[in-house]
Amino acid sequence: NRRVIAMPSVRKWAREKGVDIRLVQGTGKNGRVLKEDIDAFLAG
């Protein structure tokens, strides 16, 4: 159960899209999950 680094707005975006943010690979600094990462995860 790893800790995910993400801005609150990104966490909210993931929740709205029904995405478990822990499954998303972050591409930002220090592995931070970005809004673009959520979109890419949804795109496959």
Rank of each mutant, 00 (worst) to 15 (best):
K12T: 06
V33T: 04
G18R: 07
V4M: 06
R32V: 07
R22L: 09
W13F: 15
D20F: 04
V10E: 06
G26L: 00
A6F: 03
L23D: 10
M7Y: 15
L34H: 05
K35D: 03
I38E: 01
G28A: 04
N30E: 09
L42M: 09
R2D: 11
R3Q: 12
I21A: 02
I5G: 04
V24E: 01
K12I: 08
I21N: 00
V19H: 02
K17W: 10
A6H: 04
A43C: 15
A6Q: 04
I38R: 00
V33Q: 02
G26Q: 02
I5C: 15
L34S: 07
T27Y: 03
N1D: 12
V4R: 06
K29P: 14
L23H: 10
G44I: 13
I21R: 00
N1C: 15
V19Y: 02
K12C: 15
L42K: 06
L34I: 08
V10I: 07
L23I: 10
K12D: 14
V4F: 06
R11E: 09
R15K: 15
G31I: 01
K35M: 11
K12V: 06
W13M: 15
A6M: 04
G18Y: 05
R11W: 14
G28Y: 00
G26N: 02
K29M: 11
L23T: 08
Q25P: 13
E16T: 11
E36H: 11
Q25R: 14
I38N: 00
K17V: 13
V19D: 00
V4G: 06
G28W: 00
D37W: 09
I21H: 00
L23C: 15
I38D: 00
K12M: 08
A40P: 02
D39R: 07
K12E: 13
G44S: 14
A43Q: 13
N1T: 12
I5N: 10
D37A: 02
G18Q: 07
L34V: 08
V4N: 05
R32I: 08
I21F: 03
V19T: 03
K17E: 05
V33M: 03
S9A: 13
K12F: 06
G26H: 03
E16C: 15
G26I: 02
V24D: 00
R11K: 10
R22D: 06
R2I: 11
G26P: 08
A40D: 12
G31Y: 04
S9N: 12
V10F: 03
M7P: 09
F41L: 07
R15F: 13
V19W: 01
G18I: 03
W13H: 15
D39H: 05
M7R: 15
E16D: 11
A40V: 09
V10H: 02
L42N: 05
N30S: 09
N30T: 04
K29V: 13
D39K: 07
M7V: 12
G44E: 14
G18V: 03
R15I: 14
G26Y: 01
R32S: 10
A6L: 04
T27F: 03
G28T: 01
A43R: 13
G26E: 01
V19A: 03
A14N: 01
E36K: 14
E16L: 14
L42P: 04
I21W: 05
R32M: 13
R11P: 13
L23Y: 11
D20V: 03
P8R: 14
T27Q: 04
R32Q: 13
V19R: 00
K29D: 10
R32G: 06
E16N: 08
P8H: 09
G18S: 06
V4T: 08
P8Y: 07
L34Y: 06
R2S: 11
K35N: 04
F41R: 03
V10K: 02
V24Y: 00
F41N: 03
G31N: 07
I21Q: 00
D20G: 02
K35R: 12
Q25S: 12
V33E: 00
G28L: 00
D37V: 03
K12N: 09
Q25I: 14
N1H: 14
V19P: 00
R2F: 08
S9P: 06
R32D: 05
D20W: 04
D37K: 00
R3N: 10
G26F: 01
E36V: 12
V4P: 07
S9M: 07
S9H: 12
D20K: 04
R3V: 13
V10M: 03
A40H: 12
K12L: 08
D20N: 09
F41E: 03
R32P: 01
Q25H: 14
K29A: 13
G26W: 01
F41G: 02
D39T: 08
K12H: 08
V33S: 01
W13P: 11
E36I: 12
G31A: 05
G28N: 01
A14W: 04
A14Q: 02
A6G: 04
S9C: 15
L34A: 04
W13K: 15
R11L: 12
A43Y: 10
R11G: 03
W13V: 15
G26D: 01
V24W: 01
D37G: 00
V10N: 03
M7D: 15
N1P: 14
P8Q: 10
W13D: 15
F41A: 06
L23R: 11
K29E: 11
T27G: 04
G31E: 04
D37T: 01
A14E: 02
V4I: 14
R11V: 11
I5D: 07
A43L: 13
K17F: 08
V33Y: 01
R22F: 08
G18K: 07
R22P: 02
P8K: 13
A14P: 09
A40M: 12
A6Y: 04
K29R: 13
I21G: 00
W13I: 15
N30P: 01
R11A: 06
K35F: 08
L23G: 07
A40G: 07
D39L: 09
I38M: 02
E36G: 12
T27N: 05
Q25M: 13
A43I: 12
P8L: 08
I5R: 08
E36Q: 12
K35V: 07
R32H: 07
R32K: 07
V33L: 04
E16M: 13
L23Q: 13
I38F: 02
F41K: 04
A14D: 02
D39N: 11
S9Y: 09
E36F: 07
